[in-house]
């Protein structure tokens, strides 16, 4: 099949960048989208042109490294699918495809489709954990966790940290990412002791990173390759508001 790719090319953080059009006359519908970019890159190398830089690693939809906005939608048109698992059979012969990096102030572009997502790591470092040093754990069955709670926590814990939520949000907000972690840990009895502090600290770090606010449009939920739900954002709001509003004053 034939595809025309309009790809965002940007040499470095300071380069203004532009769209460059590439013709792909003979791609195989069973290729993944990234494999199509591989093929294109091989040709660019043959022509002596700089290949397109894009992040990728596991290519099975779990590492969260890949991510690009394909035809205006993060990870492309297929729901619950990362770019590496998106196959060309999703498109029609002759389609024109626009490929851009995640765009957000908190995710500065490094080159072409590669962006810096370290803001997510800093949010986790601010509170996205259970403070349990190695060796201090009780028996795994000491605290029962109802199956339904464990399942719900797992729904949230599936987040792969790809950043599609930020990319899709009209406000460049990271609420879904933060909410997934706040919910995952806050739901489990092991994470309860730090629940509200965690929500407060992570949200404060999120705000410091320059992400936007939530306007409840639901775009993130639709873009999330792991189908993490909006209700987790409500859960985070609840934990955060209680954490800030109703917490007893701490001794400074």
């Amino acid at each position: 099949m034939r595809l025309t790719l309009h790809v965002w090319r940007q040499k470095g953080p300071k380069d203004p960048g532009r769209i460059v059009t590439y013709d792909m006359p003979d791609v195989n519908p069973d290729m993944s989208f990234l494999e199509a970019l591989d093929v294109l890159n091989e040709r660019l190398i043959q022509r002596g042109e700089d290949p397109i830089a894009f992040d990728h690693d596991c290519r099975e939809g779990i590492c969260g490294a890949c991510g690009m906005v394909i035809n205006g939608i993060p990870h492309g048109p297929r729901r619950a699918t990362t770019a590496c698992q998106l196959h060309l059979r999703t498109f029609k012969d002759g389609d024109e495809i626009w490929v851009e990096p995640w765009r957000a102030r908190a995710f500065p572009t490094i080159k072409d489709l590669v962006v810096d997502r370290s803001a997510f790591d800093r949010i986790i470092a601010a509170g996205g954990f259970v403070s349990v040093p190695t060796g201090s754990a009780p028996d795994g069955n000491a605290l029962p966790v109802p199956k339904k709670v464990a399942d719900l926590a797992m729904d949230a814990a599936q987040c792969i940290g790809c950043g599609a939520c930020v990319a899709s949000c009209p406000n460049g907000s990271a609420m879904l990412f933060v909410a997934a972690k706040v919910s995952h840990l806050g739901l489990l009895p092991q994470g309860r002791p730090e629940r509200r502090d965690r929500a407060r600290k992570m949200v404060e770090q999120m705000d410091r990173e320059g992400f936007g606010a939530c306007t409840n449009t639901g775009e993130c939920e639709a873009a999330c390759p792991k189908e993490i739900r909006l209700e987790f954002i409500a859960r985070m709001n609840r934990d955060f508001l209680r954490g800030t509003f109703a917490e007893r004053p701490e001794a400074e």
């Binding site: 009780p138 795994g140 092991q190």
Partner: peptide, 9 residues
């Protein structure tokens, strides 16, 4: 035990 305590679901 360690992983459960960390919140591995």
């Amino acid at each position: 035990d360690q992983c459960v305590a960390q919140g591995v679901p």
